[in-house]
Design a protein around this nucleic acid. Structure first.
Lengths: 1034, 172
DNA sequence: GATGTGTAGCTATAACAG
DNA sequence: CTGTTATAGCTACACATC
């Protein structure tokens, strides 16, 4: 080939290709044509033996767009062009192969050489320092991945290696494209290996890499790309679906709106039941409305459509019997599809053939109609009360008696199914219309007798009692009936024991002294069978009781019960549990004081008090709960039992602590401080100590949460007002030892702001304690950073964030009770003064910087008190003069001082203006009240005095205090300055006598906070912990 | 100042009458996003209560509005100006005919000392970027008693009654 | 690493066709 | 009714800039 010809053709090829690119960058419009042209150029070049030249120039021209950043339209157009060109070639080849054309000119070879060269070419930029180049390279690879045909092994290895490097690129955009590329290399074999082979750094299987990305990539968009492109089979599905809890909102939403939606009917079959439940719960409970709505739409729209609107089938899929979230799901369904409401019917003939789904729909439909006042539907679909009770009775009999009822229909019904149906009917019954007396009476009979069944499950006891409450005439009637049931159960048991004893003694059996039923078990061959026998007996009495009641002999009078003296024998522990369960659910619904409720008093004596003293843990816990519920009804009882409850918390095992703690909090919530501190009452300090102790004990995280939540409640209610206890509370929020106790953190995250912003006295308490909190936490943090490498340094917030939090909490603008005087509020300013005051106790430059750089988040306003602002300025000046600060800190501090000066200036200007305008009249008045303002009268002072004459109690309380504290502060500040310089000198000598040292040593003690073995007083602000241990005696 | 005084009085009377349920809803709404606490809170200012409608606030707000609008107008002008400047700059075109010898060398330059990889510590995250369990703390939850959930305590409006008594109420 | 700007990915509403 | 398209407006997140 001659050179001139060669370079001529070569140039021609270059010009032609370049022209296409030149045109194509302008718009997408001519792309079709451009691709045709490119193909023509290529085939012509091949014909002329210039295949390489075409490839060379094509690649070279593509290189030009590589530096273009993301979303640059020109770049995107060329990328599209390349993709379309390659796709077109590929498609042509496949088509040709499919039709068995003779490929005349080795098109396949041309294509694969072109692709091979192209990929190798762009890969040269895969590790370019320019992130745009890396992005474009990966983008080009991603868009051609589907159409590269077969590539040889060396290129494949090169590509995989590059992609597995780029998946860890610095730039998220690059990683996203890498994910897109990798998704094309997945296959089933790999997903199997996912679970079967161990993790391996050198394992370059695409699926494994993608799974690593979906879980570990910091960028939400990368995880999203992996989620949407990961192959969806049994092995990978859990990784995809767990994104329903991704921290990113869009990712969470996409699980419902894309992943699950596209799975269609397979969602029901292919997802494991517990995961399926979890997904629905997560979706419907999500904090973000958009996620919640996506989930609702999935259920109410997509899924219901898939199932052709078959509501029952949908409920089957949702597994109503097991999943507690279904109530929410169906409510969403009713709301978004009101059309289906009218299609729901409950004809008479299905009443005896309820399934779990129908029963559930029945109850949900009823509740919905009731809540939304759809009376016509109620009348149309729901039978009269007596019918309801009949049906209920039918299922109760089915469940608790095996003979006497036509069995053929319900052969497949297991007890769980029946209990679920019964529960649904009872839930309906609780809100049913019982204006018809006959209906009410018959339902009452059914429920009372049901509650007498000893085999009744706890959920049914609970709802049964509630139904009984709604059926009762008044509370006294309710209590009477409930206690009668309880007494009957106990008496029956004792009777039975006596009977058995007689039989045993007749047999001359020796082992009768073993505590009742435990011994019995040995004699019984089959426990279940015996229970059933027992049940049959109960059903028999059940029937006779029904007879009695229907004949009107139902209600036993109160005196009957009281006169029915407690038998001397004790009931078996199983029976006691049955009684206590019923009584606790009863007591939960009672509100009349104990003094008007003699029956409950008798219950205390016969059942509850013995239970509290029982040695069996479960009985004792139930007893404590019952006792607590009674205490809520009577102050006197509460007072008498505070001590024992305190003992339970301090000496009991975890579960006893857990319940007793709740009881104590509830008692305080109801009775306030009346239950402590007085003649014969428990000392409130001792109770505080109990709370400290539980709060600090991270061995029992659940109890910590109760203590925290409980304390927050009590502080919110102003039952507790102790600053030290409050400080401990806030400290445990930030403490690293609690960082893994999510419930605790969330309780505080909610309660602390509610507390601070609900009342200015609350915010003032925070303000008073905040500086000390900050100081302690700074020391703690510092210690954590210097601790052993095993420690998790992220377990604690950095001091700057803590400081920001405290500033936010003390910001008066966040108070709910916004008034005009909010702008004058100085709570946050006093916090700042305290911080500046303790500032010298912070030693680390790093921490000082974190404090100072946030100091300007404090709200300053010319409305605020002049002297307070002035004081802050003085402290700031002091720090500037005496501390060596880095430039950032200094700038921040200067800015604060500058701002302060501006504000102070403005106050001065205003007051001058005012004195001119108002002809001295008002000012005279106020200055006479103020008396001592010898220096220039400032507007701030005036405001303040107005606050004082006002009836605003908080201002009135604070005004004098503040001025004195401010004065004191100044004194202290000077003193401190001296001490500080002395300390600096003495530091090397080890002098530890002054107050500052004392403080630091107190602080060092707190370091134990991090170290479990020393944690005793670490968190507690309470200094002397060892003196009175009222609850450790005995 | 006299006006302020007046307004103070007004606010004190009106502020006390904010309904408990409104307060509860207010807190639930505002703390919804901050449920994870700790490092996850944002300085997002609380949506101000619009429940209190006393003269002082109306006055203050109108003043703010006046100032705001003036500011906004100024800002708007600046913004639109900035946008006008930004938009027309997108007339970029590549000359594909211009191929000088060295251009590929720049693009395919070795990474050198530029860090193009994620730091190792960022490649694994134990949280897997999943949210923690949500315990759904709410005013509803913290006002109800632990062992007697039907009974609610009244947390916010008890102040006027007597200190140290949470004055529980029962809602039927 | 704090800041302001830009944008992906909805959400809402209407109009319109099937 | 149901589904599509077009429009504007919104917010959390990403990106850029200093």
């Amino acid at each position: 080939m001659q050179e001139s010809d060669g370079s001529d053709i070569n140039t021609k090829i270059f010009n032609s290709v370049a022209e296409v690119f030149q045109k194509a960058q302008g718009s997408y419009a001519g792309h079709r044509k451009h691709i045709a042209v490119l193909k023509k150029i290529q085939s012509k070049a091949v014909e002329q033996g210039y295949e390489d030249a075409f490839n060379f120039w094509f690649d070279k021209l593509v290189t030009k767009i590589l530096p273009l950043k993301k979303n640059e339209t020109i770049g995107d157009r060329i990328v599209k062009l390349v993709a379309a060109f390659i796709a077109s070639l590929d498609r042509e080849l496949i088509l040709a192969k499919g039709q068995d054309y003779e490929l005349s000119n080795d098109e396949e070879g041309v294509f694969s050489r072109f692709v091979d060269q192209f990929i190798r070419h762009v890969l040269r930029g895969a590790e370019s320092p320019d992130k745009n180049v890396r992005f474009r390279v990966l983008q080009l690879l991603a868009v051609i991945m589907d159409n590269i045909g077969e590539i040889d092994e060396s290129l494949f290895n090169l590509l995989i290696l590059s992609l597995n490097k780029r998946i860890y690129d610095r730039e998220p955009t690059v990683r996203i494209q890498a994910v897109f590329c990798l998704t094309k290399f997945q296959d089933e074999e790999q997903t199997k290996n996912l679970t079967e082979l161990p993790d391996d750094e050198e394992n370059y299987e695409a699926t494994r890499t993608l799974v690593a990305s979906i879980q570990n990539d910091p960028s939400a968009e990368v995880r999203r790309a992996a989620m949407l492109n990961l192959i969806n089979d049994n092995n990978t599905r859990p990784y995809i679906l767990e994104r329903a809890r991704d921290v990113n909102i869009v990712n969470r939403r996409l699980v419902y709106s894309r992943i699950l939606k596209s799975m269609g009917k397979n969602s029901f079959a292919d997802i494991e039941p517990h995961i399926f439940d979890q997904l629905i719960e997560w979706g419907l409970e999500d904090r973000e409305p958009s996620v919640k709505n996506a989930c609702k739409r999935l259920i109410a729209h997509d899924w219901l459509n898939i199932l052709d609107g078959d509501l029952i089938e949908l409920l089957e899929k949702l597994d109503v019997a097991r999943s507690s979230i279904c109530a929410k799901a169906i409510e969403a369904l009713f709301q978004s599809r009101p059309d289906i409401l009218s299609k729901i019917k409950f004809p008479e003939n299905i009443w005896r053939d309820f399934t779990v789904e129908i029963a559930f729909l029945f109850r949900a439909f009823y509740s919905y109609c009731l809540d939304n006042n759809i009376t016509e539907m109620l009348e149309e679909n729901f039978p009269e009360a007596s019918k309801l009770s009949e049906h209920l009775n039918h299922y109760i009999l089915l469940r608790y008696r095996h003979e006497g009822v036509p069995n053929n229909l319900h052969v497949g019904f297991d007890s769980n199914t029946l209990e679920f149906i019964i529960e649904q009917l009872l839930i309906t019954a609780e809100r049913y219309d019982f204006s018809d007396e006959v209906g009410r009476r018959s339902m009452l009979t059914v429920v009372r007798n049901m509650l007498a069944l000893t085999a009744l499950s706890e959920p049914l006891i609970k709802i049964g009692i509630r139904v009984m409450k709604s059926l009762s005439i008044n509370e006294k009637d309710f209590v009477t009936m409930a206690i009668e049931i309880i007494n009957d159960i106990r008496d029956d048991d004792i009777e039975k024991q006596e009977l058995e004893e007689k039989i045993k003694s007749k047999k001359g059996n020796s082992h009768k002294n073993g505590v009742s039923s435990d011994g019995e078990d040995n004699d019984k061959t089959n426990n279940d069978a015996t229970n059933d026998d027992e049940e049959d007996d109960n059903i028999a009495s059940f029937h006779s009781a029904v007879e009695n009641l229907v004949q009107g002999n139902g209600n036993v009078s109160e005196s009957d019960i009281i006169n029915n003296l407690p038998p001397e024998k004790e009931a078996s522990s199983e029976t006691i549990v049955l009684c206590l369960t019923r009584s606790s659910y009863m007591l939960e619904l009672v509100n009349t004081p104990l003094t008007e409720n003699i029956l409950i008093a008798s219950l205390m004596d016969t059942l509850i008090t013995p239970a509290v003293r029982n040695t069996a843990p479960n009985i004792r816990e139930l007893g404590v709960k019952n006792l607590g519920l009674c205490c809520l009804l009577d102050v006197k009882l509460a007072i008498d039992n505070m001590y024992i409850l305190g003992m339970c918390v301090s000496k009991g095992n975890a579960s006893l602590k857990y319940i007793a703690l709740q009881v104590i909090v509830d008692i305080f919530s109801v009775h306030g401080n009346a239950v402590v501190d007085g003649e014969g009452k428990v000392d409130s300090i001792s109770l505080h100590k109990i709370f400290y102790k539980v709060l600090k004990n991270n061995g029992l995280p659940e109890c910590q949460v109760i203590a925290a939540e409980g304390l927050c409640k009590l502080f919110l209610a102003d039952v507790f007002t102790d600053d030290d206890l409050f400080e401990t509370l806030v400290l445990s929020y930030f403490s690293p030892i609690n960082c893994s106790n999510e419930a605790l953190v969330q309780a505080f995250a909610f309660c602390i702001p509610v507390y601070c912003f609900s009342h200015s006295t609350h915010q003032q308490r925070m303000s008073r304690t905040a500086a000390d909190i900050l100081l302690r936490l700074c020391v703690l943090w510092d210690d954590l950073q210097n601790s052993a490498p095993g420690m998790n340094r992220e377990a604690m917030l950095k001091p700057n964030v803590i400081f920001q939090q405290l500033i936010f909490w003390t910001d008066p603008r966040n108070l709910v009770n916004q008034t005009a005087s909010t702008k004058k509020d100085i709570v946050q300013l006093t916090f700042l003064i305290d911080v500046l005051k303790i500032f010298t106790q912070i030693e680390k430059k790093e921490i000082k910087k974190m404090i100072l750089t946030n100091v300007n988040a404090i709200f300053l306003s010319p409305e605020q008190d002049y002297s307070t602002l002035k004081k802050i300025l003085e402290y700031s000046d002091d720090i500037t003069e005496n501390d060596t600060l880095d430039s950032v800190s200094k700038n921040a501090l200067d800015r604060l001082r500058n701002n302060l000066n501006v504000v102070l200036e403005e106050i001065n200007e205003r007051s001058e203006l005012q004195t001119k305008d108002e002809n001295n009249t008002t000012n005279d008045q106020y200055s006479s009240i103020l008396g001592d303002s010898s220096n220039k009268l400032s507007n701030g002072d005036i405001d303040h005095s107005i606050g004082t004459i006002n009836e605003d109690s908080t201002d009135a309380a604070n005004a004098p205090n503040n001025s004195t504290t401010v004065n004191n502060l100044q004194g202290q500040s000077n003193l401190r300055k001296r001490t500080r310089s002395e300390t600096e000198q003495d530091d090397t000598l080890g002098n530890s006598e002054d107050t500052l040292k004392q403080n630091t040593s107190a602080v060092t003690k707190d370091i134990g906070f991090v170290l479990p073995e020393e944690k005793e007083d670490a968190m507690s602000v309470d200094e002397e912990d060892n003196d009175s241990n009222s609850f450790t005696d005995i | 100042d006299e006006e302020d005084d007046q307004n103070d009085d007004n606010s004190n009377t009106t502020a006390g009458s904010i309904l408990e349920k409104d307060l509860m809803a207010y807190f639930d709404e505002n703390l919804n996003r901050n449920w994870r606490g700790r490092e996850h809170w944002k300085v997002r200012n609380f949506k101000r209560m619009n429940l209190v409608t006393n003269e002082a606030n109306i006055l203050a707000e109108t003043q703010n509005v006046v100032r705001d609008t003036t500011n906004k107008n100024m800002g708007d002008d600046k913004l639109t100006d900035a946008k006008k400047k930004n938009k027309p700059k997108k007339v970029l075109e590549i000359d594909f005919f211009q191929i000088d010898d060295g251009f590929e060398d720049k693009i395919f330059a070795p990474k050198g000392r530029t860090k193009i990889d994620m730091p190792i510590k960022n490649r694994k995250n134990d949280s897997h970027y999943l949210l923690p369990d949500d315990f759904h703390f709410s005013t509803e939850r913290i006002t109800r008693l632990f062992i007697k959930p039907e009974q609610k305590m009244s947390l916010f409006n008890h102040k006027k009654n007597s200190r140290g008594d949470a004055s529980t109420r029962v809602f039927d």
